[in-house]
Each structure stands twice: as structure tokens, then as C-alpha cells.
């Protein structure tokens, strides 16, 4: 591994939650933390140059992302622990999708070092499941939900071969897992937004991905469908110990399952446990408009504008 010389590890990480990603209430990351850990109000970057170990799904060290000759963000240094559900947040154009492109190996970093699941990013890494933004608008009338999920397994194979019984079973399992069996044989264009999103997630997990990248999976979904997708993410993480990164504009629907957040602030990506991010000062700075954080009597966190 040609990683840069590891810098001194600080005592900052791992967060208690990260050392035991599968603790008793995976859908509620910090039920016993009524007072979030605000001991790092300066939001200084976590471990510099920390070598990746088994516990890290994603490591960035001094990464600068350049697209079309423009620096989208720079000095990206962070570690995302395996088994986390990470909200990727930031204002429009901050480079959330760009981060995914780097992780997918579609865009090389202009500077710095990236490690995904213990190795450099590689296009076509079968351990990564990806659901792009605006997934629905890209779909034509021509494909059934089942066939789309099957492509997640066989879509890279050249030559004509029948889909094997084992592959068909994996497709059935993935469809069942996301609750899409009832409409598996329908055309994608005829499904509702929530149904399409579930099929897309089935395609992302059909090859037993270890890292799921979901770009705005809740966009254009009504409240009920948002909650269904969020619940599904919590269940997937619990069952498969998969790491999930979710780009989202609105944190609220995801707060019940998020363990961490990567936030793009002032041209730099940062990583923190979710409780450190759900912070009025930080969110207000992040979105450039006043954001308040409210905790309900049941202990649920909400953010709201104004």
C-alpha cells in the first residue's frame, strides 16, 4: 500500500458508536446520549493520514476534487468507519455527488489519497452498490423491475448466456428484501417513486455490496415512502453490516438511522458522529440560513429552519 506516511493518530476516533456499530439500537444510534458530544466545536479534521484498517469503509487524506478545471472541494481528510450510516450533507453545488464519483473511481483525486474498503477506488468494484441521483427520470418504459435488478449481477457479462438459477434466486432475494416482490414483473416506468427507489436499492444490494452509495434517495418521495426507505436502510445495515452513505438535502427523515455525517463546509469535507453535526451553530453555518435543532420529549432530534 502506497499510502502517505501515517500521521499521529489523535484520540478523537473511534467514537464509542463506531467501535460497536451493531449495538442494541442500530436504528437509534445514540439513545443514551441525551447530551451529544460537543467537545469538538472547532470541527477540526479527524485523524490525519490515518492508515485504513478493517474498520474503515472510506479514508480520505488531503484529497482535492477537481471537476472541469474547477476545485470543488479540497483538504478532504476523514475516515468513515465500516458499518456506519453516513449522511452526506451540504448546500447545493458543495460537491456531494463529486465525493461519490471519487469513491466510485469515476473521478481521480487531483491531490491526496483515497481508500475505499481497504484499497484504492476502482471503477467496477463489485463491493459497492450505487443508486445515482435522479434515478427515476433516466428510466424508460422498456425495462421491468426484475430485469433491472438482474443487470446488477449480470450486466457486465459479455456474450449470450441464460441467467443461472442461482442468479435468479439472488435477484428474488434482493427484491424480497426491499419489499418489491409484488411488483417485480412490472415495468419500472409504471411504479411509484417509492417503489422505483426500492428496486434501485435491490439492484445495489443484489451483489452483496459492502458499501452503498445513495444519491438523494428521498428526493421527490412523500413522507410515507421516505420513512419506508429510511427504515429499509436501518434494516439493511443491521442485517448485512453494510456501510451506507446517503446524500440528503433534508436530514430530518434520516436522523433515526444516521450514525455519522460527512458535511461539506467552506470547501472542505468533514466527518463527525451525527450528534456532533446536529448542532444549531454548525447547521446554520452549513446552510447559510438559520437552522434550529429541537429534541422531542421522546428523544428524537429534529432540525428546522428559522
Amino acid at each position: 500500500m502506497s499510502a502517505p506516511a501515517p500521521g499521529p493518530a489523535t484520540a478523537r476516533l473511534p467514537h464509542p458508536d463506531h467501535s460497536r456499530p451493531d449495538h442494541g439500537h442500530p436504528d437509534r444510534p445514540h439513545p443514551d446520549h441525551p447530551h451529544p458530544d460537543h467537545s469538538h466545536p472547532d470541527h477540526s479534521r479527524p485523524d490525519h493520514g490515518h492508515r485504513a484498517d478493517q474498520a474503515d469503509a472510506l479514508v480520505l487524506d488531503g484529497v482535492r476534487a477537481v471537476r472541469g478545471g474547477r476545485t470543488v472541494w479540497a483538504e478532504g481528510t476523514l475516515r468513515v468507519p465500516a458499518g456506519a450510516i453516513v449522511g452526506v450533507i451540504g448546500p447545493n453545488g458543495a460537491g456531494k455527488t463529486t465525493l461519490f464519483q471519487l469513491v466510485l473511481g469515476l473521478l481521480p483525486p487531483a491531490e491526496g489519497w483515497i481508500e475505499v474498503l481497504g484499497g484504492p477506488p476502482r471503477r467496477g468494484d463489485r463491493r459497492i452498490g450505487y443508486v445515482p441521483q435522479n434515478y427515476r427520470s433516466a428510466l424508460s418504459d422498456a425495462i421491468r423491475a426484475r430485469d433491472l435488478v438482474t443487470l446488477g449481477l449480470t450486466g457486465t457479462r459479455f456474450g449470450l448466456r441464460r441467467t443461472s438459477a442461482a442468479d435468479r434466486k439472488r435477484v428474488d432475494d434482493a427484491l424480497r428484501r426491499v419489499g418489491a416482490t409484488a411488483f417485480a414483473d412490472e415495468r419500472m416506468s409504471r411504479l411509484s417513486g417509492g417503489q422505483q427507489q426500492r428496486v434501485a436499492i435491490a439492484q445495489a444490494i443484489v451483489d452483496d455490496a459492502e458499501l452503498l452509495l445513495l444519491d438523494e434517495p428521498l428526493a421527490n418521495l412523500d413522507l410515507r415512502h421516505q420513512q419506508e426507505v429510511v427504515a429499509l436502510l436501518g434494516e439493511l445495515r443491521r442485517e448485512r453490516r453494510v456501510t451506507i452513505m446517503v446524500v440528503a438535502h433534508d436530514l430530518n427523515p434520516l436522523l433515526p438511522v444516521l450514525t455519522d455525517a460527512v458535511y461539506l463546509l467552506d470547501g472542505h469535507p468533514h466527518h463527525d458522529p451525527i450528534d456532533a453535526v446536529v448542532n444549531e451553530q454548525l447547521l446554520t453555518h452549513l446552510y447559510g440560513t438559520r437552522v434550529r435543532v429541537v429534541r422531542t420529549p421522546q428523544g428524537d432530534l429534529f432540525t428546522r429552519g428559522g
Binding site: L106, R123, Y130, I143, G155, T156, L160, Q203
Partner: peptide, 23 residues
């Protein structure tokens, strides 16, 4: 078409994911 069938279908209906998957 016989050789390209699956990757071409993948790239046609789902280009963004197909590209990420290495097609």
C-alpha cells in the same frame, strides 16, 4: 448484439450505474 447484449442493455437503460459497475 449477441456478444454485447447484456452490457449494451445495461448501458442503455441505466447508464450511470452501468458506468460505475465498470461497463
Amino acid at each position: 448484439l449477441a456478444v454485447l447484449a447484456r452490457p449494451l442493455v445495461f448501458a442503455s437503460v441505466d447508464p450511470a450505474v452501468a458506468e460505475a459497475r465498470g461497463v
